[in-house]
């Protein structure tokens, strides 16, 4: 079960698909394939139905949030300073755009092999968060994709019943994102202490001041 062989086999059988081999440097050596959105369902169906692969068991589906990252590197540049050419250190900033990634772990019940890992990424984290759903191929993705929609905010096109799974329907925001901030509901903490108590007191005094100013206004 070599992932390179599987990759070339898929490329030969699903015309036009673009696969990217993603290396995993850890000792687990579970490398993965990144799928393009247009051919994801075709590739998944091929993996499920091809007689020598038969990845009929989609075990685990999960999301990963990668916020935009700023890389700073110091570069030496030659510049004219006071009419003289000198080497000056300059800090260059490059931003890696943020993305939401979804990972699928596949096994084969019939052939008893696996796992292979598939990944897909969205274009960004704010508006272009769509991705094709693989639930029509593997029913086991049904609840797990709903969970990713709920906690990460990835919208799966073609999912039969895309609703929030764990949070309640009126909930806004996606708690598993790295930049999620919990709401400021400290007064509901039953036994507030330390930092929470401090913030709660501040929050409460602000609320009281606001009420008082409102009462004065009337």
């Amino acid at each position: 079960m070599n992932l390179e062989n599987i990759k070339s086999e898929i490329e030969a059988n699903v015309p036009g698909c673009q696969l990217e081999f993603v290396l995993n440097p850890s000792p687990s050596a579970q490398h993965s394939l990144r799928l393009d959105h247009a051919h994801a369902v075709a590739v998944a169906t091929y993996l499920r139905d091809a007689a020598d692969l038969r990845f009929d068991f989609c075990s685990n589906v999960t999301g990963i949030d990668w916020p935009a990252k700023e890389l700073t590197e110091k570069v030496k540049v030659k510049k004219l300073v006071d009419g003289e050419e000198k080497e000056v250190e300059e800090v260059r900033k490059t931003t890696i755009p943020g993305t939401l990634e979804v990972v699928y772990h596949l096994f084969s019940v019939e052939k008893k092999h696996g796992p292979i890992t598939l990944r897909m990424s969205t274009k960004d984290r704010e508006t272009e968060v769509h991705m094709p759903s693989l639930t029509p191929v593997w029913r086991s993705a049904e609840f797990q994709e709903r969970e990713i929609f709920d906690l990460f905010g990835v919208v799966f096109d073609g999912h039969p019943d895309l609703r929030r799974l764990l949070m309640w329907p009126d909930f806004i925001d996606h708690p598993m994102r790295r930049d999620y901030v919990a709401p400021d509901d400290f007064e509901y903490e039953p036994t507030a202490h330390d930092a929470v108590l401090q913030r709660a007191n501040q929050h409460q005094s602000e609320a009281i001041a606001k009420l008082a100013s409102e009462a004065e206004g009337k």
Partner: peptide, 10 residues
Amino acid sequence: RPKPGEAYGR
């Protein structure tokens, strides 16, 4: 601190 990478264990 494990080295960067990923693993699925079951």
